[in-house]
Design a protein around this nucleic acid. Structure first.
Ligand SMILES: [Mn+2]
Ligand SMILES: [Mn+2]
Length: 327
DNA sequence: GCAGACA
DNA sequence: TGTCTGCAACGCATC
DNA sequence: GATGCG
């Protein structure tokens, strides 16, 4: 049985060692398991394909993961099996992996998140069956000031990607009017996210205020195609503007994260000019795109970050406090 | 996916 | 030795 | 407090 089923830019640099495969970098050694195991039965893609994808995409993806506490969506038995999210680093984490302690539950607990710094560390994480990489919205242990604001466009049942494209165009019109730079990506599943790099001076309450007011304006402009309803059954046929994901401890699949979807799709950053034609790329197709257009999302990682103050003034956007949580 | 408990 | 079991999130909205 | 949501 083959370890991988796809022609990759670079094959995984591993040496077979009995039941396992060893990848090395300096003094560090990672033992990889079950590489021929089929993770996408319909396509025949293996765990080896998943790991080889992350190895090849590491150079492009790492700027978006740098210093960010990581939540893993793990599916050790492939996309047909059960999943779980994992935030705390497992007990068996090697000492050379970097972890970041982050206060949670209104500061009463500490979560020791994993962080990845290079391709080998990404391989160690992916080997856990981590199909999705979900970085937090801020870098480091202080998670009070996100490095971006974002619009999470979720087509509900009865709506699809075409509607998400259209709603993204409505958001873009308002952002242009406010003078805000924003960068879109497909989620890799059904929706689109639009990210606004920030200068690190804004709290989540302020960010929710701005994203909330703009979302309400979009909803007023087209209440047939968009919804802000919390109840799923009231969203049918519309695109849900998920303002609340701008929140401490929340996360979304990173740019270039794999998704447990048919064809092994990946979250695909794109240029606004491509809004009408972009589709989710896959672990197979994304490398041709990267070779051609590079990474349209680089400014989300490298800045420049923006201040929201002009938009807050223009919109009269008040901070949206989270309700006080039980201790 | 994996470590540890158990037969 | 092989097989089995336990374990692996969170913050916020709404009622 | 319990449940829903992503
Ligand atoms: Mn989404
Ligand atoms: Mn969402």
């Amino acid at each position: 049985m083959a370890l991988t089923t796809i022609d990759w830019p670079t094959e995984l640099p591993v040496v077979r060692h009995g039941e396992h495969w060893i990848a090395r970098a300096g003094a560090r050694e990672v033992r990889l398991s079950n590489l021929p195991k089929v993770y996408w039965p319909q396509e025949g893609f293996t765990k080896g394909d998943l790991l080889t994808y992350y190895f090849n995409v590491s150079e492009t993806m790492l700027p978006h993961l740098e210093c960010r506490p990581l939540t893993m969506k793990r599916m050790p038995n492939g996309v047909g099996g059960s999943f779980f999210y994992e935030k705390n680093a497992p007990k068996h984490t090697p000492d050379w992996m970097l972890t970041l302690p982050v206060p949670s539950d209104s500061d009463t607990k500490i979560i020791n998140y994993l962080t990845v710094r290079d391709a080998l560390e990404m391989l160690w994480v992916a080997n856990l069956g981590a199909i999705e990489f979900h970085p937090l919205h801020a870098r480091g242990s202080d998670q009070t000031h996100p490095s971006y604001a974002f619009f999470d466009l979720d087509p509900a049942e009865g709506a699809g990607f075409e509607e998400a494209r259209y709603v993204a165009s409505l958001v873009k019109v308002l952002l242009d009017r406010l003078g805000l730079q924003a960068y879109p990506k497909t989620s890799g599943a059904t929706g689109i996210q639009i990210m606004l790099p920030l200068d690190g001076t804004h709290t989540y309450d302020e960010v929710r205020g701005v994203v909330g007011v703009i979302s309400e304006l979009v909803h007023e402009a087209d209440s047939t195609t968009t919804t802000l309803e919390w109840e799923v059954s009231k969203r049918t046929g519309k695109v849900f503007l998920d303002v609340n994901m701008n929140r401490e401890g929340a996360n979304i699949a990173a740019a270039y994260s794999v998704r447990p979807e048919p064809n092994a799709t990946v979250s695909t950053p794109f240029e606004w000019a491509e809004l009408g034609t972009i589709e989710n790329h896959s672990i197979q197709s994304i490398f041709g795109r990267i070779a051609k257009v590079g990474d349209p999302f680089l400014p989300v990682a490298e800045g420049p970050g923006q201040s929201l103050l002009p938009a807050i003034d223009a919109l009269g956007a008040k901070p949206r406090k989270a309700r006080m949580v039980r201790r």
